[in-house]
């Protein structure tokens, strides 16, 4: 699994949140967020993680960036366990870009002050070098120099997201996690940011992990895609193949549900849309209750990862 080519890999990664049952009840209940996941990311590659709310994709991403401690499993960045990195060294290698561009900037600091932090603390540059770096990066993300002395609330979403990108780039990290990079932005601004991310990836040889609920966004910037459902990866594949020929019924459902401009609505029959209970996960396949292809077997057995034509999925009865 841990290929030498991989810039990042994670093995058997899980996260459970435990909660005491009550004030006087010492017994605790485990809430499953991410369940036994393996991930690998190659250099200069962009990997998409797609799934609906509550599937654990943000928890997974935050564990990779070292913002949440995993319950079990190991994460290696450049073949070194992240626990073996020195304090404050990890952000030099992996960075996280947040969904809401405005709230990821301190409201009481100017943009210049926010951008100077990674240069000062991660790269130990002096004042002069900091100014030079900031001025050059601000051009890279197409912002004006006069913006530097303004405060976050003076910016539109698109501009703030460019500032977020600049901050991430300044750390010189090669792996960047993009958490819903455009979902807070206006439609006409989304494509600007996606193009910018594509350009910067080539220019600075970055590797991306892109998290989104929007399949179209994932398709536009990713080479490979993993589909997550209920804390588990149910399908992984090259982006092109996944979007042309989804194997897992859940991937298929997602693709089918995206509204298209050239068709009227089809009547949906009401299949359950609720996720299983994370405190008491089902024994069999977690997608069972919503699945079109289900049989009795799926109810009792949880499918293992199957490989077919270079594609991996967890399903007994895949589509196609």
């Amino acid at each position: 699994m841990n290929n030498k080519m991989d810039i990042l890999s994670a093995k058997n990664l899980s996260k459970f949140y435990s909660k005491n049952k009550g004030l006087f009840n010492k017994q605790s209940i485990n809430l499953r967020a991410v369940n036994n996941i393996n991930i690998n990311l190659k250099a200069k590659e962009s990997l998409g993680i797609v799934g609906e709310s509550g599937c654990g994709k943000s928890t997974l991403a935050k564990m990779l960036a070292g913002l949440i401690t995993p319950s079990s499993g190991e994460i290696k960045i450049q073949d070194k366990d992240i626990n073996n990195y020195k304090k404050y060294e990890l952000p030099n290698h992996i960075q996280y870009m947040f969904q809401d561009p405005i709230s990821s900037l301190n409201p009481r600091k100017t943009i210049y002050q926010s951008l100077a932090a990674p240069l000062k603390y991660l790269r130990n540059l002096d004042e002069k070098e900091i100014e030079k770096e900031i001025k050059s990066i601000i051009k890279e993300v197409s912002l004006k120099e006069e913006f530097l002395n303004r405060f976050p609330h003076e910016f539109s979403g698109g501009q703030a997201q460019r500032i977020g990108i600049a901050r991430v780039l300044l750390s010189k990290a090669k792996i960047i996690i993009l958490d819903e990079p455009v979902s807070a932005l206006d439609v006409s601004v989304q494509s600007q940011i996606l193009n910018l991310l594509n350009d910067l990836q080539k220019k600075f040889e970055l590797s991306y992990i892109v998290i989104s609920h929007d399949l179209a966004v994932i398709e536009a910037i990713c080479d490979r895609v993993m589909v997550m459902y209920f804390g588990d990866i149910v399908e992984k594949s090259d982006a092109k193949e996944l979007f042309q020929k989804p194997y897992h019924p859940y991937t298929n459902l997602l693709l089918k549900s995206v509204p298209k401009t050239n068709q009227k609505i089809k009547i949906q029959n009401l299949i359950e849309t609720e996720l299983p209970d994370p405190i008491n996960p089902p024994e069999g396949c977690s997608f069972y209750s919503r699945c079109e292809n289900k049989t009795e077997k799926c109810k009792d057995l949880n499918p293992e990862e199957t490989i077919k034509e270079n594609r991996k999925f967890k399903c007994f009865f895949p589509n196609n």
Partner: peptide, 14 residues
């Protein structure tokens, strides 16, 4: 719990 605190952490601040 705001995101800019996580962002600061990722900027290497103690």
């Amino acid at each position: 719990n705001k995101e800019f605190i996580d962002a600061a952490r990722l900027s290497g601040m103690s």
